[in-house]
Write a protein that binds this DNA or RNA. Sequence first.
DNA 1: AGTGTAGACTTACGACGTAAGAATCCGCAA
DNA 2: TTGCGGATTCTTACGTCGTAAGTCTACACT
Lengths: 204, 204
Amino acid sequence: MAAKRQRGERAGLTREQVLDAALALVDRVGLNGLTMRALGAELGVEAMTLYHYVPNKEALIDGMVERLFTAAYPAGAGDDWQAHLRGYAHDLRAALLRHPGVLPAVNRPAVTPAALDAAEAGLRTLTGAGFSGGDALDALNALTLFVLGHTAAEVAIGPDGPLPVDTERHPLLVEAVESGAGIDDAARFTFAVDALLAGFDALR
Amino acid sequence: MAAKRQRGERAGLTREQVLDAALALVDRVGLNGLTMRALGAELGVEAMTLYHYVPNKEALIDGMVERLFTAAYPAGAGDDWQAHLRGYAHDLRAALLRHPGVLPAVNRPAVTPAALDAAEAGLRTLTGAGFSGGDALDALNALTLFVLGHTAAEVAIGPDGPLPVDTERHPLLVEAVESGAGIDDAARFTFAVDALLAGFDALR
DNA sequence: AGTGTAGACTTACGACGTAAGAATCCGCAA
DNA sequence: TTGCGGATTCTTACGTCGTAAGTCTACACT
């Protein structure tokens, strides 16, 4: 990618550049293709050089996830609480889908300043709408974890040949699937988010 | 674990034994500790022997996940649909938590006969309660993916030192956390499942 | 008794993460 | 101007991993 370098000649890297290059690499070759050597090559640098910006590979991946989440919160506080949370969920999903390759490494929300700000904004909206502090926190949590689970499942492609269902044993399943239901990921996501919001409303 | 063996002397393994041993090993040493050599040692066998039961390590992990899911569906069809789905969600979570170490490798529900049976039973209950086939499928899907996301997040332990929140910037967050809300995983899970069910009810 | 095959072992290779240390550049003090 | 120390990079090397290839042995069937 970059020109060859001599022994102490600076490449002028930053931690952010390393993380971004890692995200780009993963987008291209998948999480399994992310190796220290490959990432180094991407940046015109030897593998060991990366250890000046990241203590080890695990921390590198954590950093990528953090970066993903930091980019995920546009902090749009909506007018009414349902619109606010709906926007939050859709924005978060969109941000996660921007780097699908990293999603297998995302098993819980990263705690970043941006995430805390988003949580605070959500709590403000919800408590303002009459939720108790505890319920508001639980609601935000449930919504966030649902988004993570749904999005992770979306990108986890499987062999998924024809489902091993037979009409005798699973008539309803066959019918629902053949009617085209459950195909569109975005529609399923929207359905679920709306259900969750309606449920919060009912429990308020 | 087992006695040393000569060339050709049978160890009498089955694919199921291999998968169960892998689950046990992961429970003990974590997913990173799962290596073909270590698993072989666990079974009193060389690493390469395992390749008679599993084409490669990825398939080994897939098999573990499948096994986890197969054990997860006790097929308890409840009386009313909310009780049915609530039981399904809690049973699924409990089954997943039985082997927490594998959860990072679970990013979507495994398609197994048991899973299909459970889906069919859920559809029957829901359509019987007045849901359209498409909505019923979406609802089951949303519930399942939420359980996966929530459970995965539960076991994803983090360093999680004191949260970097300051009272000035995040007053509501500080208050909610200090009140002890959001500590108990099971309670948060119950809250979210109930919300989702209430939401399904509202959208019916 | 002879033979094929499934199940086990041995050896070996390339790739990976990273420990250890050497080389070079740069900014600052004398 | 010179010299020095830290920051950044490269080089070399080690142990471990997944697994390809080949070999050996016990048993089932002829």
